[in-house]
Design a protein around this nucleic acid. Structure first.
Lengths: 345, 345
DNA sequence: TCCAAAAATGTAAACGTTTACATTTTTGGA
DNA sequence: TCCAAAAATGTAAACGTTTACATTTTTGGA
């Protein structure tokens, strides 16, 4: 501890630089902020001192003091960093943000509501300029509060039911509809749905697309074919195992996200069940390596990168103009047909 | 802008709570910090005000003011969030950190040295309690400086050459050696190595293991079989394409990381070349879905989660005791033999 | 009931910046 | 050379906390 204090007290600050270059701290501050009022000679002198003392402005103090947005920092709070879809989103956000001189700090709440609140609190009190978040559910009070406080927020992947907020998402109903329609069109009637938790709006919408396709094809909805638990690899694995042991085994599986798909694939392979001969599978979310899976996976592609980029752009617009109308951007999905589905004969 | 100001000025602070409950700000501060000196009655009164005003302490101010470590925040700076290995590391770090009431803010520098510096700067001036980082190369000045300033730092995946620092990594030489030895033992002689950039110490070590195995088996090292570029999917794809078009095509590929492997797989599949009949492949880094790849992938497994956990633990120890000896933890790899390698006949 | 000690509360300075306003220095026309 | 205006610099307060020290209130034994 003593060591620490010793160190921190040595960390150079405005005052040290001011003394070193024999000017006031105000002048040093001006140099740091490129204030045109400071004379060239002084500027050079101060810059030399800054270099000599290896001075770096304390961003904490800057943020506490200043109202201006010079210390550009975005927060990004995501439900599951293991999910490649959210990784794509992160990349998209970073792509736009970095181009506009924002840094992005990421908090991963791992589907844990308490963690989500924690990161929301931290980022808020860090005085970030804005936040991109996938709310844990539609009535997420934490995110609601931020919106109500007029902190710039953009929701991604899912919106909020009780509050008007910027959202970038995908047409989930349409995406699920296209996948299920495809399966139905090639003769499947018993299609299991491995879903995430229905607290998450995304999965409600995907279920609705699933039902809509069934009814369009005149197939009765069978509740016992819908399985909802967590959204991770393990759930996919376990639920798939359960499905595969069903008496009247479904001929096809529709899995609700990347991780569920990957888990289901492992379960199927472990039992040496053949895809697509013995069972067909379509996943929500495509992956760069879908083509390298066994067999190449048919999937509903979400443009994760674009969603992230768009969200960052909208956040930027809101930061610049906090009163502009809330926007609701709904991107399209694309059904990537590969080798994991086959007709029923 | 005006809207923003309006809002912030309304954000409740210590003073507002103090006025509301008719005590001094010091007392409110004590309540927040669970100071046992405050009387029960006052405590309840103040807590009621806090609830009524929805007051949340401003962490920026807290961090600026306090020397104590009550506001626990760790930084985690990683080279590539797309790489599932680093995702595992993140999860391990979060696992330990969260158990110990630390939050983790992640910065992803995407192999870009400037971005890495930016995140290092931000996190440092955020007064984080400690930092876990995979330095971009062995002479990373940014990380060196933090270490020299006695800011608690733990390096992951790679160390620093010029400075004594806590490190958690894997025995890369051994890992590569085991993979190449296996390939040699089943008759392969022309083994291509798709590596990452040799500025990254990890890849130098992996190359060294590659060479060592060759020499042990009396096979001459052929420099033209070593390809080093970036560490992403695209590089893997492009380099694999080049390899597959070589006149005297190698019989096996050793790919240096997850993403390179996945990219190479796509290239191989796109050309309809059969694994392992036509070409064998072993990747560095295992993935949860390796078994679901076509064919199930043989890989050198790194314990990413454990590395992250261990790093967080070491960081914690260093925060608590800044003068303790620097530690160098080297974890073992494990060769997971599946179906992507076959003997030469 | 009184009063010393303990408990509770308050005051004010400090963390490292930015910035409104005040003061000093420089500039350049007469 | 002088002096008003412009340019450069400085002073001091403020951001929202924590905390050392001072002050006030409560407690309980005689």
């Amino acid at each position: 501890m003593r060591c620490k204090r010793l160190h921190y007290s040595k960390l150079s600050n405005l005052k040290a630089v001011a003394e070193h270059s024999k000017v006031s701290i105000a002048t040093v501050s001006r140099v740091i902020n490129n204030d045109p009022k400071v004379s060239k000679a002084t500027m050079l002198k101060v810059q030399a001192s800054i270099a000599a003392l290896e001075y770096k402005p304390n961003r904490v103090a800057q943020r506490l003091r200043s109202t201006s947005k010079k210390t550009k920092l975005l927060g990004l709070v995501i439900p599951d960093i293991q999910n490649p879809f959210f990784v794509d989103v992160v990349r998209g956000v970073e792509d736009y943000a970095y181009q506009n001189n924002f840094a992005v700090m990421i908090g991963n709440f791992g589907q844990d509501e308490k963690k989500e609140k924690l990161y929301l609190d931290i980022l808020q009190s860090e005085n970030i300029d804005g936040l991109i978040v996938a709310p844990i559910h539609g009535k997420d009070k934490g995110v609601e509060n931020l919106v109500k406080k007029n902190i710039p927020v953009v929701c991604i992947d899912r919106g909020l039911t009780d509050v008007d907020v910027d959202v970038v998402k995908v047409n989930n109903e349409q995406g699920a509809f296209s996948a299920i329609s495809h399966l139905l069109s090639i003769g499947h009637k018993r299609i299991a749905f491995i879903s995430g938790n229905f607290k998450i709006p995304t999965y409600i919408e995907r279920l609705s697309g699933y039902k809509k396709a069934l009814s369009e094809y005149g197939v009765a909805f069978d509740e016992s074919l819908v399985f909802a638990r967590d959204t991770d690899y393990k759930s996919g694995f376990e639920i798939a195992n359960k499905i595969l042991e069903l008496d009247n085994r479904p001929t096809a599986i529709f899995s609700g996200n990347n991780l569920l798909t990957l888990g289901a694939l492992e379960a199927i392979h472990a039992k040496s069940i053949k895809i697509p001969e013995d069972i067909s599978i379509v996943g929500f979310d495509d992956m760069p390596w879908s083509i390298s899976l066994n067999p190449p996976l048919s999937a509903v592609r979400q443009p994760g990168f674009d969603m992230g980029r768009k969200a960052a752009e909208m956040l930027y617009e809101r930061i610049v103009n906090p009163t502009r109308e809330k926007e609701n951007v709904i991107l399209k999905t694309e059904l990537m047909l590969r080798k994991s589905t086959a007709p029923i004969v």
